[in-house]
């Protein structure tokens, strides 16, 4: 699904990612844990195609194609989705207009208004979301947790094949976290080839969405990889102790 080779990235003359490597197969779930400022969100935005960063070297290969030179929207239409750490609000653009435009951008046949509203209503109900956000501006007046749910709503509607969840768990209360994870698991059941990269600070989300691999990222690269249990080891010992081992 996704293979990153030798990726080095800097911003404002500071090296952030340093020869970063990862390989994620179809249907796999990977988790990345790492200290604040280590470059996790940078990685996710670079995969999505953000032009805020200077790519010094490396390749991003998605389904056997080098996507390094593709624009953000092209990557999205190929099936990559980034659930952002801090989703912004956008004045004047309603969720329904936005998502309908996004859906139509990825199909040849425009979706009818009726079918679209039905899809939205079903998905919002499954996520335990308030119905009235359809006609509201994107994330305007929404809390941190509500914004995270809106990201997951977009996953359900747009149906990507590779999903990056950048701290989707932060800001969600215990019940909401459970609901969000149940929705993601259901999505995986329905679309078993979907791969997921979970960026998190806490093992709790991984109890719901069980990863095949857990990577510890420090100072711009993966320094250690383990299985599911490694997340609890990180949680118990902390990064400093594990790095010094």
């Amino acid at each position: 699904m996704l293979k990153i080779e030798n990726l080095s990235v800097k911003i404002d003359d500071r090296d952030i990612l340093k020869n970063f490597e990862i390989s994620i197969n179809d249907g796999e779930v990977h988790a990345i844990m790492g200290p604040n400022g280590t470059g996790k969100s940078t990685l996710s935005k670079v995969i999505m195609g953000s032009r805020d960063y200077d790519i010094l070297s490396g390749k991003i290969i998605f389904n056997d194609e080098d996507i390094s030179s593709l624009e953000v929207d092209e990557r999205s239409r190929k099936g990559i989705f980034l659930s952002m750490q801090s989703p912004i609000s956008i004045e004047g653009v309603t969720n329904s207009e936005f998502l309908r435009t996004a859906l139509n951008a990825r199909t040849n046949e425009p979706i009818g208004l009726f079918d679209f509203i039905k899809t939205m209503e079903t998905s919002m109900k499954e996520l335990d979301m308030k119905n009235d956000i359809v006609h509201k501006a994107i994330n305007e007046g929404s809390s941190g947790g509500e914004r995270k749910k809106n990201e997951v709503l977009q996953i359900k509607v747009l149906k990507p094949s590779f999903i990056i969840l950048d701290e989707v768990d932060s800001g969600l209360d215990v019940d909401s976290l459970r609901v969000v994870c149940e929705n993601i698991n259901k999505y995986r059941e329905e679309n078993p080839k979907t791969s997921i990269l979970i960026i998190t600070h806490y093992p709790r989300i991984l109890e719901y969405i069980k990863p095949d691999y857990v990577h510890m990222m420090v100072d711009g690269k993966i320094v250690k990889t383990g299985d599911y249990n490694f997340a609890f080891e990180i949680d118990k010992s902390g990064y400093t102790e594990l790095v010094n081992e």
């Binding site: 935005k45 999505m48 195609g49 953000s50 805020d52 624009e71 953000v72 929207d73 990557r75 999205s76 239409r77 989705f81 980034l82 952002m84 989703p87 912004i88 956008i90 004045e91 004047g92 653009v93 207009e97 936005f98 998502l99 435009t101 996004a102 951008a105 990825r106 501006a137 994107i138 977009q154 747009l158």
Partner: peptide, 23 residues
């Protein structure tokens, strides 16, 4: 804002038009 909209697959023209209408 443009990054957010494009990351959901909207083309540059789609983005401009949505933002202009909103504005």
């Amino acid at each position: 804002v443009i990054f957010y909209l494009q990351s959901r697959g909207l083309t540059e023209i789609d983005c401009d038009l949505l933002l202009i209408k909103g504005f």
